[in-house]
């Protein structure tokens, strides 16, 4: 566990930076941005621990989204109706955009002339696409289930 700490810290710090950066893009106020960063750090920390326990990316992302959603729900009094948005901003660094790009680039490659290893290219592209679908589903479900069960107010 101790040897995991530097990696865990690295992922949490960059998860926080990514979440806060996207928080600025989403026009969160300066008071909400530290909460976005904290949510991002928590999400990436949980996902990293999950992956270190040999969970799949999808499973670790689901656990991370659940923990993040429960945590922001516990802070409802401080965050108000914005708690769901803070949880979402925290989970943005887990959105598998790079896999999405790889999947589409792979599909584009399959149609290229003189393709050498079409099967391997196609399988890689399909794997990436499935990973995107399942991971997005896991993040969405992980965020929504606690918010619905704990009856977070939208207003």
């Amino acid at each position: 566990m101790v040897e995991l700490l530097p990696h865990l810290l690295h992922q949490a710090v960059f998860g926080a930076l990514a979440a806060a950066g996207f928080g600025v893009l989403f026009n969160f106020g300066f008071r909400a941005l530290p909460w976005c960063a904290a949510a991002g750090a928590l999400a990436l920390a949980v996902r990293t621990v999950g992956q270190d326990l040999a969970w799949s990316l999808e499973g670790a992302s689901f656990a991370a989204a659940i923990v993040t959603s429960c945590s922001v729900s516990a802070l409802r009094k401080q965050l108000g109706p914005a708690c769901n948005a803070v949880g979402l901003a925290g989970c943005i660094p887990m959105v598998p955009g790079a896999f999405f790009g790889q999947a589409l680039l792979g599909f584009l490659s399959v149609t290229a002339p003189n393709l050498v290893d079409a099967e391997a290219t196609l399988i890689l592209a399909v794997q990436s696409l499935l990973r995107v679908i399942f991971t997005l589903g896991a993040i969405g479900a992980g965020l929504l289930i606690p918010a619905h069960l704990l009856r977070n107010q939208d207003f």
């Binding site: 990514a18 950066g21 600025v24 893009l25 660094p93 790079a98």
Partner: peptide, 24 residues
Amino acid sequence: TPRHPAWVVAVAVGIACASFGRLL
């Protein structure tokens, strides 16, 4: 309703992309 200046958003998004890169 206030919005962050465009250059602030640009730098923040740059940092976010670079952080995404480190995560990758």
